[in-house]
């Protein structure tokens, strides 16, 4: 897939610990506009921790994360919120608000940040739901949705504010291969339709092979691979081979 050479995010010497556990150690890499970057690695090695630094949900112990040239750590509250409008996130569990219906979940970003009329909000909701193949479920409660449906609704909610970047935290985990494929197609669709930059955290190599422009592998808190899918397949590193095979 085509992407520009413009650096959107720059992560420099990022370190993060929880208690005595060093999760990320001196991690550095750039993210380019328009690419689909897959971050892979075994469960519990800090992939989710890494992407939560990209929208300021976590702060690094050391190092810096810049977005469009501005250090996220130095942003005030107002600026961090305007960054989050540009950098949306799809959570592992979907994180839909379980006290709300599908419609209310999707309406929330618009009612909070725009002055759109109710009819326009509803139109926007039905448009985004049809984008993820979930038309007509506006009135359902989130408890009535399956895992795959929740992920798709959460994806529709994530794009309600027309973000520039989408962070996916394990989008296919816990889903069967057919639904996983639908989600992978949606990731590709979203990227091309909205000119998004996508960062996908996953340990599902089937997804990686289908969607990735570039792959980063994290092992024991450090980046051990940064390249494209052909390069990772050809790698002789036993840790990488064990993971991808």
């Amino acid at each position: 897939m085509e992407h520009s050479n413009k650096i959107l995010f720059s992560i420099k010497n990022l370190s993060k610990s929880f208690g005595t556990k060093d999760v990320l150690k001196d991690v550095s890499f750039d993210i380019f506009e328009g690419e689909i970057l897959c971050v892979i690695g075994r469960s519990g090695i800090g992939k989710s921790v890494l992407i939560k630094h990209l929208n300021g949900l976590l702060e690094p112990d050391k190092g810096e994360v810049t977005f469009e040239g501005r250090n996220i750590l130095h942003l005030n509250n107002k600026d961090i919120y305007s960054l989050r409008k540009k950098v949306a996130m799809l959570f592992q569990s979907g994180a839909l608000f379980d006290s709300m219906s599908v419609e209310e979940n999707l309406a929330l970003p618009l009612t909070e940040h725009t002055n759109l009329k109710l009819d326009d909000v509803k139109k926007e909701i039905s448009e985004k739901l049809s984008l993820v193949g979930m038309e007509g479920i506006e009135k359902l409660h989130t408890s009535e949705l399956s895992g795959g449906m929740k992920k798709r609704v959460a994806l529709a909610r994530a794009v309600m504010q027309a973000p520039e970047v989408l962070l996916y935290d394990e989008p296919t985990t816990g889903l069967d291969p057919v639904i996983s494929d639908i989600i992978n197609d949606l990731i590709l669709d979203m990227n091309s339709k909205y000119n998004l930059t996508s960062i996908v955290i996953t340990h599902d190599m089937r997804s990686v092979r289908k969607i990735a422009d570039r792959v980063i592998m994290i092992h024991e808190g450090r980046i051990i691979f940064d390249g494209n899918i052909q390069e990772i397949e050809a790698s002789a590193d036993p840790v990488i081979q064990q993971f991808i095979s």
Binding site: R84, Q92, S93, A95, D98
Partner: peptide, 24 residues
Amino acid sequence: EIGTMKVTEQIDALKSMAIEPIEF
């Protein structure tokens, strides 16, 4: 209610949508 929202990442989801959890 808020504890469940916390452990199921719903509070992080609010923040990621630029909604301040204290206000909301």
